[in-house]
């Protein structure tokens, strides 16, 4: 077995073991933390398809994360108040069923990714980083000043949405849902990378001209990757909103985009389990350092700096000790 595969297996087991231990030790908070890791990792898996596979450094994935969150917030708040979302031209009711919310979140963020991607992919390099940031900021300011769904106050949903056959209010059952989804996303991501589409995308990342000469349009490949990437991050946003039972414009802020990116780089760009390792480490640091001092951001900053400077290829890159797939 390759060393990286072993590390991945250990990570998956670890993410499963912590909440199980917490369940036995009656420390439900650690289940919540593990759920958080799983959700952030899922957002990272989405972004990693754009960054790692497609070479598209998006600094605006908070847009999709937030849209997913608001898909949950808007649907659930209408269900909560028993008011329909729309009565004309046809009736749309709110919903508090997770599958309905997930589908809505995925479609909404997919459509947004299609529009944002179609415009942004006309640019490249730093311009691409910045134009995606601009779209994220647009949505951020829009949600703050749009009064219908709470503006800056956000939306509180009092009861977590339901999933047929499960009690989602039970932390371990909700964790199970997120863990399974994360697992499916990881499998999907692997299959995608090995598929003809993934190979072409990877080739387009390395040399756009070469791909064009064999009759493939890199623009379409990249746009497809961007949309898939946005959809997965949007799904993570819906789950995150359900974890907190709350959505707010901070989900759209540029810091959120930055954090999702940090998970990936911390774990190892283009590594399958990079986002999982990154999110787990980030949240663990937040927990441990947060208790040490009021000024714990300094330590967090220093640690992140050390990882970039001395642990190239992120955690997995360092542990696995072989060249990362990205160049």
């Amino acid at each position: 077995m390759k060393r990286e595969t072993m590390i991945n297996a250990l990570l998956a087991l670890g993410l499963l073991a912590v909440p199980l231990w917490a369940l036995i030790a009656d420390e439900p908070f650690y289940i919540t933390l593990a759920t958080r890791v799983a959700i952030f990792a899922l957002a990272g898996v989405g972004l990693n398809i754009a960054i790692g596979l497609g070479g598209l450094v998006s600094f605006g994935h908070a847009a999709f994360f937030g849209l997913g969150g608001y898909a949950m917030g808007v649907l659930a708040s209408h269900a909560q108040s028993y008011t329909p979302m729309m009565e004309w031209p046809f009736l749309i009711e709110g919903s508090n069923s997770m599958p309905v919310i997930w589908i809505t979140a995925v479609i909404a963020s997919g459509l947004a990714a299609l529009v944002i991607g179609a415009l942004s992919l006309r640019t490249a390099g730093v311009y691409f980083i910045m134009i995606t940031l601009a779209f994220g900021q647009m949505l951020y300011y829009f949600t703050i000043s749009w009064p219908a769904y709470g503006g800056e106050d956000g939306l509180s949903i009092y009861i977590r949405n339901g999933f047929p056959g499960l009690n989602t209010l039970d932390p371990i059952q909700f964790f199970a849902i997120t863990f399974v989804i994360l697992g499916l996303a990881l499998v999907f991501s692997t299959l995608l990378a090995k598929s003809p589409f993934g190979l072409a995308l990877n080739a387009a990342r390395q040399s756009s001209e070469r791909v064009e000469t064999i009759g493939i349009t890199p623009y379409r490949l990249r746009l497809t990757a961007f949309v898939i990437s946005g959809m997965i991050t949007g799904l993570a946003g819906a789950l995150f909103a359900d974890l907190n039972r709350f959505v707010s414009p901070t989900m759209f802020s540029w810091q959120t985009s930055g954090e999702i990116m940090v998970f990936i780089i911390l774990g190892g760009t283009a590594r399958l389990f990079g986002p999982v390792a990154g999110a787990a480490l980030f949240i663990a640091l937040e927990q441990v350092l947060g208790g040490l001092s009021d000024y714990w951001h300094i330590y967090l900053g220093l640690l992140l700096l050390c990882v970039v400077l001395f642990a190239r290829g992120g955690i997995i890159g360092t542990l696995a000790g072989e060249e990362a797939r990205h160049d």
């Binding site: 450094v57 980083i129 930055g258 780089i265 951001h297 300094i298 640690l303 190239r312």
Partner: peptide, 28 residues
């Protein structure tokens, strides 16, 4: 100067870390 040869991603993460250090350092 250790970042010039790196890709934009590493630069983003490292300078993001610098923001944290500068902000909390100033507050301290």
């Amino acid at each position: 100067r250790r970042l010039y040869s790196r890709d934009h991603l590493d630069q983003v993460l490292a300078t993001f870390a610098l923001i944290l250090i500068f902000s909390e350092g100033t507050r301290w």
